[in-house]
């Protein structure tokens, strides 16, 4: 959904649309989501701020003012949950194959296996900045659980847990992904921590959604490349015309 600044494939104006959508539906949706999830503006951005940053979405204007104050919650622990109509062992195996993970976390560029328990991860952060960390597995319980933490010197220090447990009534498997970020301190790191502080929630949710869709239907639904009246007018000039605008 998001590409580099020049790729031009992000959803232009999605933040504006979402804000409008919430506003139209009344204060309730906004307040509810805000209270429950922290910074709703960011949580709602398709692909999250991490990804938005990667796509070069300028963090200026209303978004910055609205979103950033709500993001000062550190360290940030985020959890996403999804039920997938697939047995745990299949999901576990899929997750254990690191080659599959880039499809779940699109900002991930490469994972290099260093040993049985250690791996080196390369991602791109806001504005294309490389984000690199080494990760060590803590616990691996077959078909149940995987936990890991990043090693000294990580650009994105965090601990992670992915949990698989059978869902009741033959509904498949409940998957939980918990990520605890320890944003780097200091003035320079402040901006980074702001950026990463709010995004993980959306990231985790999107990752589990992609996992679910890949495992249940074998493809991610898409509208990328479908016709519209916009294509003819050119991508750059295409403007989001709000319903009530």
């Amino acid at each position: 959904m998001t590409r580099g600044r020049d790729g031009g494939r992000r959803l232009e104006g999605s933040a504006g649309t979402l804000e409008r959508w919430a506003a139209i539906l009344g204060g309730t949706a906004l307040g509810f989501a805000g209270a429950r999830r922290g910074s709703w503006t960011l949580a709602a951005l398709g692909g999250g701020l991490f990804l938005a940053g990667a796509a070069g979405v300028p963090l200026s204007s209303p978004l910055r003012q609205v979103a950033l104050p709500a993001m000062r919650r550190e360290p940030t622990t985020t959890q996403a949950n999804v039920t997938i109509a697939v047995p745990a062992n299949k999901l576990f195996r899929h997750w254990r194959n690191v080659r599959h993970l880039a499809a779940l976390f699109p900002h991930l560029d490469a994972v290099e296996i260093l040993s049985d328990t250690e791996s080196r991860w390369k991602a791109h952060g806001p504005g294309g900045v490389p984000v690199v960390w080494n990760s060590r597995l803590d616990k691996v319980r077959e078909n149940e659980l995987i936990t890991w933490h990043t090693l000294e010197g990580a650009d994105l220090p965090h601990r992670g847990t992915v949990l698989f447990r059978p869902a009741p009534g033959g509904r498949g498997t409940e998957v939980s992904l918990t990520l605890a970020y320890h944003p780097p301190g200091g003035a320079g790191g402040d901006a980074v921590s702001r950026l990463f502080g709010a995004a993980p929630e959306q990231q985790a949710r999107e990752a589990l959604r992609r996992l679910k869709r890949i495992m249940e239907v074998g493809e991610l639904p898409t509208i990328e490349g479908q016709p519209s009246g916009r294509a003819e007018r050119g991508r750059v000039t295409a403007k989001l015309r709000e319903v009530t605008g």
């Binding site: 959803l11 999605s14 979402l18 919430a22 709602a44 959604r209 679910k212 869709r213 249940e216 639904p221």
Partner: peptide, 22 residues
Amino acid sequence: CEHEEFSLCDNSNPQPAFEEMA
């Protein structure tokens, strides 16, 4: 979908953030 509640499908909406928020 398996329970014939197709309009509640989990997987066919490529832009779920809008509805999830609202």
